[in-house]
Computed example of a mutant assay.
Amino acid sequence: MSKLPIAVAIFTILLTFSCQKKQETPLLALHVPEEVVLVDSSLITIPYSLALHPVSAAYAFEKERAVSEFYSKKIGLSDFSGSLLVAKNGKIIFEDYKGYANFASKTPISETTALHLASVSKVMTATLILKLVQENKIDLNEKVQTYLPDFPYQNTTVKTLLNHRSGLPHYSRFSESIKGWNSRKTLTNADVLDYLKRYKFALLAKNDTKFNYCNTNYAMLALIIEKVTEKSYAEAMREQIFQPLGMNDTFVIDFVNQKNEVSQSYKSNYVNHGWDQFDAIYGDKNIYSTPRDLVKFDLATYSSEFLRNDLWEEALKGYSYEKRGVKNYGLGIRIREWETGQSLHYHNGWWHGNTSSYTTLKKDTIVIIALSNKYTQKTYQAMKLSALFGDYPFELNDKE
């Protein structure tokens, strides 16, 4: 008798028995041990106490649909390379990532891809200054010369650097006043201070008389940070801001050693933007981060454990009222203040092909973050999403 029919018969019996056993075990009978904690991957937290309420699933679902519709029509089109994230109380309502961090290697942008924040970096520089005020290492009303003796303008204070009321000239325009300017030299923050000292350029306005947005202010603030901490700006930011908040994908670029490793900057059609002589200057720019890490930073602005409430209040109020208008500036943060009483805080950024938008709705505990490494102004449209979460005078369906 052949052994094959017997083997087939035995296999059939075993298979039938196995299937019956599987069918007898209900799918929902899976037991999860009590010590296992199911983590909500869409909830971002920080190690500081926060008086923020959980966000309901119904609320998140409703808002996600509205944000998604706006995103698909206004921002996340086929030519977009970047990210958008909207969160309330740390709960991610919407996030999406498109395009390439490096087009040549086809490295896609993901939730851990750090993009250049451009001038949104100023928000963090200002926060570190306030942390040092809290530690009694800096006085907001103290003269800059106290910390930087070579600084040539006697009346400029730390506060007027922060709120752009110093009247300092723009470092990007020094070449207009200096004969034989070397356009190939990569400038440092120390170079900017040295040029101010050597040439004593005329102020654009007397100290604290007029708002004039100027990157030189924040290059000087970075030097003050280094002077009082006795550490590099990058080290101080990492130790006082990034590490405490768990911003593990955020860093200040080491221009000499990292410029080929970081996400690249592009013109349209992924044409590489390249670098220029101002790319090594930091404080006003040069922080790379992700939307999820920026949510952690935003959560910290609601914590008095991270920074005292009175210092947050100093940062969030306006300082420039010599002209009537909606726009104002605090300490490292832009403000829109409407006559109807609404207000919001934000900062936009642009550097080469990178654009960024950080909008924080303090009354509604919402944060809206848009980043791109391929030049577009679509990132600035993200602020209009404020209208979905509070009484803000934006039109979601306008033609812009």
Rank of each mutant, 00 (worst) to 15 (best):
A57G: 04
G332E: 09
Y100L: 08
P108E: 08
T216S: 13
A58W: 03
Q277Y: 06
L161W: 02
A280L: 06
Y48R: 09
A9M: 13
A219C: 11
T127P: 00
N163F: 04
P47L: 08
P54L: 04
D298H: 11
N215S: 15
D96V: 04
E322I: 11
T250G: 05
N215E: 07
N102T: 07
T250N: 07
D96I: 02
T250P: 01
G82V: 02
D398S: 11
E235K: 12
K63Y: 08
A205L: 04
N272L: 13
S41K: 14
R198N: 14
R198A: 11
T188Q: 13
S232D: 03
D191V: 08
A236S: 15
F297V: 08
L361S: 09
C19P: 00
Y48F: 15
Y233P: 02
A219W: 02
A66N: 09
L14Q: 10
H31M: 07
I129G: 02
R324W: 05
V158N: 05
Q277R: 13
K267Y: 14
S56C: 08
F306Y: 15
D254W: 07
V67W: 02
K259C: 01
L15E: 03
K231R: 12
L161I: 07
L28T: 12
T209N: 10
A387S: 15
R292Q: 12
A126E: 06
C19S: 13
H53I: 10
K227A: 15
E313K: 14
Y321H: 14
N373A: 08
R334M: 11
W312S: 04
V55W: 11
R184Y: 12
N257Q: 15
S119P: 04
E261N: 14
K296R: 15
